[in-house]
Design a protein around this nucleic acid. Sequence first.
RNA 1: GCGGGGAUUGCCGAGCGGUCAAAGGCGCUGGACUUAGGAUCCAGUCCUUAGUGGUUCGGGAGUUCGAAUCUCCCUCCCCGCACCA
Length: 977
Amino acid sequence: MVSFLDEIRKIEKKWQKKWQEDEIFIANVDSSKPKWFLTVSYPYATSPLHIGHARTYGLGDIFARFKRQKGYNVLWPMGFHITGTPVLAVSWKIKNNDEKEWEKMRGFISYYESTIERIDEVVSSFVEPENVANYFAEKIIQDFLGMGYSLDTTRQFTTGDPEYNKFIEWQYSILNNKNLIVQGDYPILWCVNDKNAVGEDDIQDGDELNVEVNEFVGIKFKLDNNIFLVAATLRPETIFGATNIWIHPKASYNEISIDGEIWIVSKEATMKLLEQNHEIKIKSELKGEELLDVYVEVPITGRKIPVYPAVFVDTNHATGVVYSVPGHAPYDCAAIVDLQKDEKTISKYNLNSENLKQIEPISLIEVKGYGEFPAVEICQKLGVKSQEDRDKLEEATQTIYKDEYYSGVMKSNTGDYVGLKVEEAKNKVADTLYEINLATPIYEPSTKAFCRCGGQIIVAVIQNQYFLNYGNPEWKEKAFKALNQMFITPDKYRLSFENTFDWLDKRPCVRRRGLGTEFPFTKGEGWIIESLSDSVIYMAYYTIIRLIKENKIQPEQLKPELFDYVFLSKGSIKEVSNSTGVSKQTLDLMKNEFEYWYPNDLRHTAVHHISNHLSFAIFHHAAVFPEKYWLPAYSLNEMLSRDGEAMSKSKPNVIPIAQVPNKYSVDLTRLHLASIATPETVLEWKEEEVNFALQRLRKFWEYALSVTNISLNEKVEYSFLSKVFIASVKANLSKANEAIERFSAREYILEGYYSNIRVIDEYHKFAEHLPEAEKKAALREIIEIMVVTMAPAIPHISEELNERMGNKDYISLKQIPDIEIDNKDILYALQAKYMTDLINDIDQIVKLVKTKPKKVHIYINADWKNDLYELAKNIFKDEAVQIGKIMASAKESDKLNKYIKEIADEAKLMLRDPTIFRIEMLNAKDQESAILGYREFISSRFENAEILIHLSDDKDIYDPQNKSQKSRPMKPALLLE
RNA sequence: GCGGGGAUUGCCGAGCGGUCAAAGGCGCUGGACUUAGGAUCCAGUCCUUAGUGGUUCGGGAGUUCGAAUCUCCCUCCCCGCACCA
């Protein structure tokens, strides 16, 4: 067994070398052949790929190889994505001697390098970002070729190449001309230290904290003309229940002039607001206690409420000013109770205790399961003792928020909002406050978080951020039109696309960090096109990159008019040639190449790209290209898991592609990945199950080897069993071909490969008594078709067998024949099925009676039963089965009316199982010939028992137990003696 | 929360209105081959039974001559949600 694996591993390397040497997968324009252009999304070059990726790329390769063997000129190129922050992040961490990163990279590099010195040398080189990308790009291609992928490697590029940048600039100039790029303000997470946007990777424990941007409503409580205390809240609807304002007495506050007003907010809040797109000047600093016992005006209600001290106020959260709603907010409830009995504090700050004691909760929301004051109730229930009881108060706040938000209704004291659900009232109150300019949005991270550099994370508002406006109605409509024309498999994902399209709106398309193409309209300002927005029409770039490199075209020559000419047939070749210095001949070749290959016939990727990349690609194609170049088809597959956990680069459960050829075998892995589950399920990789694929592969190999030296020139007369055998294999192969045409790789392998191995097994069993020469000839005949048909899935083994069968050509380039199924084949298949069932029945009876029969009597039904079933089939195609109808029709039939008594019994049976007459039936003659064909097999199975065939309408029939009347067209009656 | 997907026989995983007691694999049981086998091969694997019949496809109701497959409700699980590629 080990030797078999060794043997095919050797074979795999042998053929990969030959394919490379003869460059058989390099694709060139050939107008005499139809073309087929496949892309699989390019990988990100910061780590080696693992076997989960091999699922996606392996499916792509099966498609590419199938189309190639169907006579298409196939282009399947590969590039690399390096845009964004990951490459820089790796480089930065290596430079800073981040121990974890070093270990991770050493692990990765050890797949490819054998000495520690060499590994460390490679890792050290990663201080240069381009070395990271280059190293992994090279290794990934090496891994891909090691998996036997039929890639055109002459069209490689990375998204960081200056030529590519020119292409993206052109794309964005078109989008801009079509007014699809808009500007607006945009809140993002921001490090105060780096003065830069941060992503999850940059945040300490970012993956666990899951920090998001929260939008608070900063409500302005008027203190004096144009002077406001600003309290930020997530629950603006509670403004009707405000009884006072809370300030931390010991904390520092600022008086600031902001957008023409004067605000009082905490010192920390001032720093945050500075980043949120306001005109701010700090006028003075004051202590919280200086503000106590003054009165401010509540917006909308106009009531005057006092400012009181509370230590639960966190000045580093939002504005450090809180308005108090003791009826519905647990913290406020606890704090007001605390303060009312806290004589010390009252006298310390000289508060008017009369007014303070008069403060009572206001009820403004009706909630099921609660009384007047939900906050008071829940504080009592949880046993909250003071405002310092933080855990309990936090829990209480969460509970109340949820209950009130989903089932609360606004009470009669809430002005225009009476009767509204809290869910709606919340937004309406906020809108009103914004409209009357008594509120401003204030942004705050959902969780307190810090950057890896140590700086605090706040929310900054980017002014005039650039967005791609996917919400543009014309664009969206066009994109939907494109989507509706597409073939998507598995089909269930179409709905996901439709939902994504509906939901897509403005999306920021530039960033300040990471690698990529500089945004062409703000050169020098450091804006880089966002990394998902620069990889949506690059399939077109594959068609011309080889010519750009071969002709040494410089980036600066790649002016927009060149792309306009090549991709959109705009402008004159003469002018374009003049302005770019690219020869007319080269321009023509580029244009020709694009027009030959485009559109991108199939794009295959992993499912998780639906909500971004794959949807964007449809939008951008619709915006940039004429309709004939839109994307025709998507094919998708889910990811892979091991031990129930998704295989991801950072986890220890990965099997790198680099180890596949030696740990398993390439063909074995390709076969297993494509056939173990349908693409829409997360595939669980189990070692024990790989073994199954290996055994079958070996079996196929051995079957094939046993007939490689058989010559097909001598005509062998096939007996019944051999004819049935060949017909069965052909039927399966035909199904396989039909499946792969729809890109159902699993069905293709199951039908074309696994089912057929089983058919061969059965043939060997049933046909043991046939002459050796006949068996070999029949096997050879089907192996030959199987090898060529299954080559897309197991190309290496197929090449080897093809060679050993005496062929000099590449099977990878050999035409897969169309399988013609004629009536004779259909009959054979039905007869085979008939006999399998019959033999099973005999086996079952033998097992039950536990004695081996000496005689097997088989009773074939009388002809009129076939007529009856045929008749029933026609009547009840799509109406309810009724005995009366059967009887009436039978009476009218010349053939049947004489058996009317028997038919009544038979009809009762039909009624019990209405599926009976939907089955394809064999007539008596075909049943008999089938039994005769298998007679020797059945006989030998039971120590040469005698096989007797009876026709049920034979007058002299031997039928002591009256079995014959039970016989039916696909189920003969049996008597064992 | 919003949006989407799913629940199949010991497990994984097909099936998606009628050859469905439900492919295939794993596991388990028996047999063969073996010095041995955690290697391989063959057979069996819901209950019952001369090839039959019965009860099954998360739970409940419905549509239909007929439902694992369609509709509705319930329970539970998974995934995406914007600067992260």
